[in-house]
């Protein structure tokens, strides 16, 4: 899950570097990430990745670019990744402690 979160963050940082005009090329990557998220149980993350992919593809074919929508999705997803990391870290500490105490306490 940590690797998937890293990949999500990397994809979003790449989109920030290259801009939305090249987003159509990245749409496939976001879609794959969305599928992977859904597969391992990150439903919200999966939905957002899917939406970003769809919005990037739509942008290529539209005259009026709805950039605010993509930015909003992207910013939400960044916050989501951060929250997931915090949650995972908390769980990892608890799991480590459980492995020490045998999970009985």
């Amino acid at each position: 899950m940590k690797e998937l979160l890293d990949d999500m963050e990397r994809a979003m940082a790449d989109l920030m570097l290259s801009g939305y005009a090249t987003g159509a090329e990245l749409a496939g990557r976001f879609r794959n990430l969305g599928t992977e998220c859904s597969r391992i149980g990150l439903k919200n993350g999966g939905a957002w990745m899917e939406e970003i992919a769809r919005a990037l593809e739509q942008r290529t074919h539209s005259v009026r670019k709805e950039d605010l929508v993509i930015t909003e999705l992207l910013c939400r997803a960044v916050g989501y990744v951060r929250l997931c990391r915090e949650k995972i870290q908390e769980e990892e500490i608890a799991v480590r402690w459980d492995s020490i105490t045998g999970g009985s306490l």
């Binding site: 989109l15 290259s18 801009g19 939305y20 950039d67 993509i70 930015t71």
Partner: peptide, 11 residues
């Protein structure tokens, strides 16, 4: 901020 993102850091 949205236009910054749309433009891309590279440009």
């Amino acid at each position: 901020l949205s236009s910054l993102m749309a433009w891309g850091l590279g440009r």
